[in-house]
Design a protein around this nucleic acid. Structure first.
Lengths: 342, 342
DNA sequence: TTGTATGCGTTATCAG
DNA sequence: CTGATAACGCATACAA
């Protein structure tokens, strides 16, 4: 009964069968399938009819084996599931990626790498499942992606920490400049005691934004010691904010390295009775939907996340097409978006 | 220069090369790779040494072509990216799925289907990329997944609407009973005028929870006409809540069909000065992280989302293993979790 | 323009 | 226990 259902599954039609049905050779069918220009129109038509009728779909494994191409790329995220799903920033990047891929013949394989044991991911990647890889949320310790580059074209979202290959391809924003613009705004509106909740310090984005914070304050002759480290999660930022306020209760402004973290910070601020922006002005980073999710809309350093995803995919596709004139870096602009929090 | 980088990519080692290095035949290497018991220990060792040394990884395309198996399954989500990423419910399900898959040899392919044009997804699925499929967030119109079942084993998350195949495999909760327990609680605490923000009415989960709402109220002899339709997003629920309060300003309780939607509702309630739970008691559904994200923790009907994901993957794996004694349905329990909103 | 022949890297079926 | 050898389904150089 159950077995019956299983064995009822008909075998997929093959090139051979289509060829037989259309009365031509496999080669010709292959040509039609791959859109070769040198096939007589009438033959094309009859072959397509056969394809239609048999509901033929080429077998990717066979095609890949013969052509050494898979027509699919991987998005590697060395992060855990909850973090990945929790931050709307990732959603935007993925959207951009799929948008670009959708207008191509490539399909996307999402690999959230920390749930998968690391080596399993590497095996998957290296066993010829994909033609190239996109890597986002890259941490310092993640050298496992480094040797990926010896295997296939790789494009990073955010400058990779990896020093070995200086010639990495990546799409990024100038996080230092972005942070400076955010902090400068806090200074401009007259705040003198600015604190920050940083991103993870094992990620360039975390480090760079912290550096921007320090730079802006240094230029203004203001202290830059009210620093607590976050981890790009709301909960982590909430805890960090508590620590910060305990240590530096006198701050009148806060630069938070991501919108999602700012949501956590704002909750703590509200709980502690610090009015935003009156008592403490807050500037965040990303301009993701999270910036508008709370009761007070966030002033934030906007980065074009979706466009960055699009650019990453575009870069990789060009690399895969053999384009040897693609620039290694694509630094996109940030822009301060003024809302209610500062 | 750039070309140099590309051509520097060394070819992946093959079975053949490993065989040569180990001084045995391809067949023997294949046996070792696949853990065949009938190979002399000493040979196994020398082969493994060669594998190690050459850094060999089997080619999936070739393996798949020869064995008619891909060792990977797809998770199909007929939903758009933002919705998928926006709801922590999905994160939990995916986590459960990967958890089960991680302890197997299978890998996961995530297909968020509405970004991908539909037919592209189907082509991908049908071209032998995966051995089986998991489908979540299935809508009434999505009959395209129906004929998937003629191609490979499919397990649904949530009872599918598809009437054609009565023998679908699925994991679900009793949404009617769950909704009843939630609404009954509102009645039990003395509320007489209960409204609801429903899920999409083209999804069984949306319909069933609405039916539960009606049933509970009917049993209590209370009116069940304060109904507005939501779409499982916070924004959609916010709008629906506004409509509801305009139409039925007298409600003293609200049953919202998902936590994420409840977050949207709560924001509107706060904005309109309706205190929760004093003026309006709120019960939601899911018990996802969203239930704890707002200022007031949500009383909610808990469903074991992660476990459901795990169960889905487990079911599919057993199907793929040829187990013909697997039950078609796995209905998991819900449980009312009392917090601050009701 | 079309067909033939060969190879892609594995698995699987045979002998030995 | 091990080694030839034939598929697997498709692409492609080469021949016609």
């Amino acid at each position: 009964m159950t077995l019956g259902t299983r064995s009822a599954r008909p075998p997929q039609p093959t090139l051979e069968m289509v060829a037989a049905a259309a009365g031509v050779s496999r080669a010709t069918v292959s040509r039609v399938v791959n859109g070769s220009p040198k096939v007589r129109p009438e033959v094309v038509e009859s072959v397509q009819a056969a394809i239609e009728q048999l509901n033929y779909v080429p077998n990717r494994a066979a095609r890949s084996l013969a052509s050494h191409q898979t027509q699919s790329v991987a998005l590697v995220v060395p992060e855990d599931m909850t973090k990945f799903f929790g931050d709307p920033y990732f959603a935007a990047v993925v959207q951009g990626i799929t948008q670009r891929l959708d207008e191509s013949d490539y399909t996307l394989n999402l690999l959230v790498a920390s749930s998968d044991p690391r080596h399993k991911t590497m095996r998957y990647l290296r066993s010829g499942n994909v033609d190239g890889a996109l890597v986002i949320s890259h941490h310092t310790g993640d050298d496992f992606v480094a040797n990926l580059e010896s295997t296939m074209p790789v494009v990073f979202g955010g400058r990779p920490t990896n020093h070995s290959g200086a010639d990495n391809y990546f799409v990024d924003v100038d996080n230092v400049a972005g942070a400076i613009s955010g902090v400068q705004h806090l200074i401009d509106i007259g705040r003198h005691r600015v604190g920050t909740i940083t991103g993870p310090v094992d990620m360039p984005a975390g480090i760079d934004r912290l550096n921007g914070f320090r730079h802006a304050l240094g230029q203004a002759g203001l202290p830059a010691d009210a620093v607590e480290h976050g981890d790009f999660t709301a909960a982590g930022a909430a805890a960090a904010t508590r620590r910060l306020l305990e240590r530096s209760p006198d701050i009148d402004a806060l630069f938070v390295a991501s919108d999602l973290m700012a949501v956590g910070s704002m909750a703590v601020l509200a709980e502690l009775g610090r009015a935003v922006p009156r008592d403490i002005a807050v500037v965040a980073f990303d301009d993701s939907p999270a910036a508008l999710s709370g009761p007070i809309s966030l002033t934030t350093v906007s980065q074009p996340s979706k466009e960055m995803g699009f650019a990453m995919a575009d870069l990789l596709l060009r690399l895969l097409a053999g384009d040897d004139a693609v620039p290694h870096h694509n630094i996109m602009p940030t822009r301060l978006v003024l809302r209610d929090s500062a």
